[in-house]
Write a protein that binds this DNA or RNA. Structure first.
Lengths: 194, 194, 194, 194
DNA sequence: AATGAATGAGTCTTCATTCAT
DNA sequence: TATGAATGAAGACTCATTCAT
């Protein structure tokens, strides 16, 4: 039982490596087996099909991702520190796995797997985490009583775009985005002082 | 001559429909031929391979996209109107073609096609268009002298995320994002008045 | 009429070049058209199919080949000179066209074209030419009253093998076979003097 | 191990049958699979491609051929018996496989496979076998001190031509060549006694 | 008569999946 | 339970042939 769970995770982690690098169609089941250090047939002892493995891997990744993000944010006290932690966390994930969530969402859609609900749920949880931080800022009197959902998406989108720009377009594998300017813009806005 | 160009474009447009719906690997050359209303072999009269067709289609789409965006922005006078036009334009493209640029970029990477430069160029042109608008705002004394590159990415990322959230996650195929709140946040910031 | 014959021959000669270099299957009708400097469709005005063109080309080649060989041999008076002329002629053909007759025979067989009779007829004519020379030697009292058919095949086979060895195996594109030794062996035999 | 070698050879032998009958281009991988009584995909477990299979089959055939010829010749004591054995061996091979070596050489050349060296090596080994026999005759004082290389080629070419004439042209599937006359001509020459 | 753009039947090859061991 | 040899459905691509101009 313990053994089986361990092997299952072994496969999922190998799948994560291969699918994130090759995408669903270019990834070979063979390559995943090699990555996991097991026989090809063994994969089919734990998953009905390549699609099923992909689906389970997505679930695993999303849960793990949200769990770790949640833990990371909890480690910080102030909402500013939390926002900066969020940026840091996203940066590390993007450097390691690339723009995986977008990619998985897209591929799941093409494959026809019904995991939209998983993405929706995960995404909403993630948004909630950011909304909570912003709410904390409002409660502290530091932020205006703005629509936190929109604000959360603005923040997340900004971070995502800045990171993607650095990492995927400018090939800066460090993703050295201008955090201070970002925070400044989001906090103080673009408008000139009247 | 005129005829040939017409047939080439016919294929590219069919390819755009099929590739945007199915992605590179799931798309069948056959399906593109059917979509174009021609024989399978005809595609190979105009493109060496499926990959070549994909590459040419991406170039075509990116050029067309930037050209239209540029025209749309020129139609507006004030920078506020331009920013709203940008949102409108992005919304329409995303509703029609989905998150194509992200998708194409990812797939091109996996296929191994050397079109990163095309994306890079296009992306930089698009950023420039937004930077120009923000610069106009600064020149008009309405915006602070902020780093326009970061600001442009913040704006674009915000718009993209809000739209993607509406269209892909919440299935609101209209993408009814909260433009006023977005503009308010970006202009005035999150901070409470002191 | 004159015009048509000319174009037909033009195509056959182009076909000869391409088929002798590429073989039946690898040769493209397109390549033959390019070689002939005409449009692809034009070939089908003169021949029903690739097979038919191949068949007609084989007939043309065999007739031309035998005609020229016959003329070349007639130019020589003595049977020794004729035999040497035969070697010279075979050498030139083999350098220019490769081992075409074998090849055509083989390919015709595979394609399923009924030209075995053509080869049979041509081959028998060629054997007759050599038999006549040998008969001339016998008549002159220079040769024993040996079975001329077998002797002709021995001579032809010897020449063919020596040439093929030089040209195809040892890459000596000149085919410098040891004519004197060949003639010596065939005339005087291998046996030591008693 | 034993099993794998067995399956590999099974495929090669099926390939030999099909390629020798159809030639490289007309032969279908499917047909080879059917001939071998296995699935189409299995062939690709043992060979990268149709070309690779062809190449390996040629190597196999050439080695087997030379090995058997060598053994057959060793069984005979006198050089005359060895020469007759050579003829007998060639006849059997040609009846069974056709003019395979010529054909394979030609096709390998067209396909562009680099097996010319294999043919060259095999051919030289075969020539050596015949040269050794002739050398034995010279050593025994039965043959003149003639150039054995040329003599070997004369002998081999004569045999080949006589057999090809019988088998391919005159459709005598028995290849009943006139061995006595051949030996007589080669031993005693064509010349009339002085 | 001459052309070459258009076609689609035909073939090699890949790879997810099965199943005997 | 774990394996990997065997399979064959599926798909990219080629090229002989047609036919409208």
């Amino acid at each position: 039982m313990e053994q089986e769970k361990s092997k299952r995770e072994l496969i999922i982690e190998a799948a994560l490596k291969v699918f994130s690098k090759e995408g669903f169609y270019k990834a070979k089941v063979d390559a995943i087996a090699v990555e996991a250090g097991i026989g090809k047939g063994t994969i089919y002892e734990y998953f009905h099909s390549k699609e099923h493995l992909f689906e389970e891997m997505v679930k695993f990744f999303m849960e793990e991702y949200l769990h770790r993000l949640s833990l990371a944010l909890k480690q910080e006290k102030t909402f500013v520190a939390k926002l900066k932690k969020y940026i840091q966390f996203e940066k590390e994930v993007m450097i390691r796995y690339g723009d995986l969530i977008y990619v998985f969402m897209r591929e799941a859609h093409i494959i026809g797997i019904q995991i939209k609900e998983i993405f929706k749920g995960s995404r909403n949880k993630k948004i909630s985490l950011v909304e909570d931080i912003l709410q904390q800022g409002i409660a502290a009197g530091e932020f205006r009583k703005i629509n936190v959902n929109t604000a959360a998406l603005v923040f997340m989108g900004s971070v995502h775009h800045l990171l993607a720009d650095e990492i995927f377009i400018n090939d800066s594998s460090k993703g050295e985005i201008d955090i201070e300017t970002l925070i400044d813009i989001l906090f103080n806005g673009l408008k000139a002082a009247e």
